[in-house]
C-alpha cells in the first residue's frame, strides 16, 4: 500500500495536511511529490501541517528536514506548522532538533511567516 497525501495550492503556496499515521513509503512519496509540485506550480512556499500527528519519529523528522532542504534548493521555503507539545518534547529527546526547519504554531502563523521577506523567516 502506498497512499499519497493530497497537495493543495493556494496562490504560490503549497499546503499539505497530514491527517493519518504514515507508512514509510507514503512519507517518501510525499517528499518526491512536493519536489515535483514546487517546480510544476512555481511555488514560493510549502506549509506542512502536522497538527493531527500523534508522533513524529526519526523517519518523518528526516522527511521534514529533507523537504525543507529540497525546497530551499528549488527557491521555495517550507514551514512546518501545528506540532503538538508532546511531539516536540519527544523529538528533542530523541535527538532531532530539526535545526534547518522553519516552524510555526499554526497554519495562520505559518502563512504569515511565508509572506515575510526571506531573511526574517529563516528561523
Amino acid at each position: 500500500m502506498s497512499d499519497r497525501i493530497p497537495i493543495l495550492r493556494i496562490g504560490d503556496i503549497l499546503l499539505v495536511s497530514v491527517q493519518f499515521d504514515l507508512e514509510d513509503q507514503t512519507v517518501l512519496n510525499l517528499q518526491e511529490d512536493l519536489a515535483e509540485q514546487i517546480v510544476a506550480k512555481s511555488a514560493q512556499g510549502v506549509v506542512i501541517d502536522i497538527s493531527a500527528l500523534e508522533i513524529v519519529d526519526s523517519f518523518v523528522g528526516r522527511m521534514l528536514a529533507t523537504v525543507a532542504a529540497i525546497s530551499r534548493v528549488l527557491d521555495a521555503r517550507t514551514v512546518v506548522v501545528g506540532m503538538r507539545p508532546a511531539v516536540a518534547i519527544t523529538l528533542v529527546e530523541l535527538g532531532l532538533s530539526l535545526g534547518g526547519v522553519s516552524t510555526a504554531l499554526d497554519l495562520e502563523k505559518g502563512l504569515a511567516k511565508l509572506r515575510r521577506p526571506a531573511s526574517s523567516a529563516s528561523q
Binding site: D24, I55, D57, F59, R84, A86, I89, T90, L94
Partner: peptide
C-alpha cells in the same frame, strides 16, 4: 498506543513510548 492508554501513561510518556517503539520496529 492502546496499551499506553490502558496503563494511563501521561500524554508525553505515551508519545515517547510510541516513538521509541516505532524506531525499534523499523
Amino acid at each position: 498506543r492502546a496499551l499506553a492508554q490502558q496503563c494511563r501513561l501521561s500524554l508525553v510518556d505515551q508519545t515517547k513510548m510510541i516513538t521509541a517503539a516505532s524506531e525499534l520496529a523499523r
